[in-house]
Design a protein around this nucleic acid. Sequence first.
DNA 1: TTGAAAGCGCTAACAT
DNA 2: ATGTTAGCGCTTTCAA
Lengths: 353, 353
Amino acid sequence: MKAEISKVTINDVAKAAGVSKGTVDRVIHNRGEVSRKSREKVLRVIDELGFKPNLYASLLASQKERTICCIIPECRPGEFWSMTRKGIQEAAAIVSRYGVKVVCAGFDQYSVDSFRMACDSVVSMNPSGVLVAPMFRDETMRLADSLSSSGIPFMFLDSKIDDAGYLAYFGMPMYESGYLCADILTGGRNIPHKVYVVRISRDKTGLSDPTAARRAGFMDFMARHYPETLIENVFIDPKDAASIYERLDATVGREKDGRFVVMFNSRIHLVADYLSVKGFHDCRVVGFDALERNVAALKDGTVYALIAQHTDRQALDAVNAMTDHLLLGTPVAKRDNFIQMDILNRYNCDYYL
Amino acid sequence: MKAEISKVTINDVAKAAGVSKGTVDRVIHNRGEVSRKSREKVLRVIDELGFKPNLYASLLASQKERTICCIIPECRPGEFWSMTRKGIQEAAAIVSRYGVKVVCAGFDQYSVDSFRMACDSVVSMNPSGVLVAPMFRDETMRLADSLSSSGIPFMFLDSKIDDAGYLAYFGMPMYESGYLCADILTGGRNIPHKVYVVRISRDKTGLSDPTAARRAGFMDFMARHYPETLIENVFIDPKDAASIYERLDATVGREKDGRFVVMFNSRIHLVADYLSVKGFHDCRVVGFDALERNVAALKDGTVYALIAQHTDRQALDAVNAMTDHLLLGTPVAKRDNFIQMDILNRYNCDYYL
DNA sequence: TTGAAAGCGCTAACAT
DNA sequence: ATGTTAGCGCTTTCAA
């Protein structure tokens, strides 16, 4: 939202160009009905005088309303997506003053059907712009096509699909975050004998795994710097607490040479719970995202570090960018907006939001 | 800037309360001339209808201009304060649309006189609000008194003076940043035999040292976790390159047991230059702030980590908060706004801004 | 193709 | 103490 308030008004322009306000307005919004001659003259005068329309007067007069739809996973308080939702809320409050409404269409991140339904409902609303967390590739492509053909701009949040014609992307550089994670996990210790990568077992196939790139970055770092270190995957089901303990007991629990554990999603607190209950204190544990439960584990020393991102700010930026685009017709400043990766430990986490 | 756009207008309120727009307006801005009875009625109706004045219509109509003055050190590109200035610029562009002007009064951060002059010039402008980096205690108190007695609100940036009646503070938690710094410096290595603290020698006395609290945090951490470690202060003059090398040669250069070096201001690049020229690669170096030259040293491996803060965002937040306060009369959301401390290493610095 | 005029919601000067 | 009215800069009919 960069438009400068300018002292030059549409009246000044009209006078200087020898036409009426109406004509100037028609030129500004190129809605035709203007002779080439007047058009050129007005354009020249606008340039000479440095006229910038007053956005607020414009909004006041037009009383136009726009709607931005967000297609975002549903979640419970404290879960990953709640931060994003918070950012969207905040943004909604701000842009409401420009006559822009923000509405969310939620979906179950483990259900293609629910994603499809969310997409359909959004398309049927004929929104001015769309923000979407593209959890399912094919359905996202369908959505993208549908929106594109209606001339509705859309942006990706958190992850992206490159060959969809998105207006902008806001998210973390995933591969690099895995690389960073490996550095932190291994930094300043003896060479780890083995690293446990705890993963969520997904029963459905066809789900796009948003952390795949992160895992790749991690593996590349390890292969390069610690080729001798063993990597063992441990699959758990987040909904089945008992089985988590079982699985971890059979793996991490048996380790004798110093426990190194990572997770690439936001659920490291599951591991922290286990370690804490078992009284394992000699571990090096690194995870992602500053969920309350993760930060608690950071503070009590069970987790060594978290790699976090301000998804709320990310969402806010996205909504703002979309609003700018809608109101000002601004071509977005940057197409791929990579958020910074924040390293959190027990000493700086208190000041993280 | 949270005000919701509301469908209820001042006309609706006037009608419902059985008075005129003028009276409603008087009540809203409590500029007297209203009978108790009308006043109460209007207030009740406002509450019932949930009326929120349309800020833009209001701004449009009143054509009022306000000025925020910033008293900030002068600096060259790439230096610490240039980030802050950037944030102020950005904020200025945004709030200009609310008819708020932002002007900067610069000063030489090593000269009390120049600070005093900046303060005086600001006071004489009779600004609507003031942002100040309180580098000199006594002069800042003078400024605070003067502003307070004129009813001009002011905020502190970067550091603060507790017993001045500031409206808000935006900055880093300095003590904690020193603690964090010590943790990073010592983390995952053998116990350091000695740590070199490189400091700027200031010839003038009476300067408030903004990094004193940070140093205290650092020392406390060391005393607690590494009581055996020696701490040696090395004073350098940033303007005298030759003497820097001399001083470092005589200290850091002679170290045999692994070199640990920190600086508490933004000039760690001076040390990095030295180490790099000398070809010392076995060092653990930690500094502050993501200046270009510091980040360069981070990337080439000379510096191990930087603790950084987004002073641009900080400044932007401050200007926004002041604007809100001026326009909406909002009591600031938080008085002490501690910015997060960002840990930068070679793997995440590319995405830092 | 163009101009004139009536607002949008609010402020402020002027009446009463 | 209160109502009336003329704008603020722009959009949008409606005529011409």
